[in-house]
Amino acid sequence: MFTVSIFSGCQDELDINDSGNLVPKTVDLDPSLPSVSLNNALFHAEAFGPADGPLVVVLHGGPGSDYRYLLNCREFASQGYRVVFYDQRGTGLSQRFPKSHYTMQVAYDDLSGIISHYRTDPNQKVFLLGHSWGAMLASAYINQYPTAIDGAILAEPGGLIWKDVKDYITRSRKFKYLGESLNDAVYADQFVTGKTDQHAILDYKFMLLTSKESSEIGNEGSLQEWRGGAVTFDAYLEIGDKQKPDWTTNLNKYTTQVLFIYSANNKAYGLQHAQKVSAPYPSVKLFKTEGAGHDMLSFPTGWSNTYPAMLDYLNSLK
């Protein structure tokens, strides 16, 4: 305690519970951020391009990441599309909620709310562009509402049934038990713990834990993000483990072609997994992004190799 007293006296200590110290403030605490209020929640959200253009709703991965790493998708705005980004409930810079708050239906309702908020005309076409968990959510939404969406770009969803998701996670998260990566991920557990409602602490720790991505997924570098959502991540992982969801039961009713993207450098994915995961869709165009890994939409090579295929796909359906 002597030591603590000395350190406390030397500098003004900071409060670990305060947003803005270790993690940025969320939209409910920082009114300067772009936001949308719907379904009794405040979302960090913004849109680019003409308001009456075909909607491209971008769904980020995680669960528990945010849309910052997908901002390359703004480029569709220059082609006349209305590109909509939002941080899903409880993650990024969106408002935080208790773990018990999360269900798949809540995620569907939030996506429906976002579409309704930005749609200016009932005839305005709506496309979903989902990456990783975002592609899983897009498929789950299409499975729930097979007539609501006019097209979908799905970039490496882990799986559309839980077993495929677990298998993919296992392949993509290979840690050496005696390696530095494991230390980087877990040793901080004795330094920082947060109670279930201390989102700033939990999110910071989540970002430390997830800062080191497995080399298996082949990325060119580290992703940019604003703020992870630890409780959101836990909640959806628990939902998956308990409910073992199958988001393929109605996909046979979705006859529109989907563009299914997988990357050349993600050793945990590959053509075989892409074919397996995309199989429930009646019409699939598989596209392999060369020179990129799992986050092919975030880094220059992956983006430049994928963008033309995505634009062709959207233009064919708009």
Partner: peptide, 29 residues
């Protein structure tokens, strides 16, 4: 974990430049 000093790398600051380095209380874990 009673009191913890946080010092962030340039990689972290690329994500969040306003992060505050220093000693943090209350008990961090």
């Amino acid at each position: 974990a009673i009191v913890t000093h946080f010092e962030h790398s340039d990689a972290f600051k690329e994500n969040y430049p306003e992060v505050k380095n220093g000693w943090y209380q209350p008990a961090t874990g």
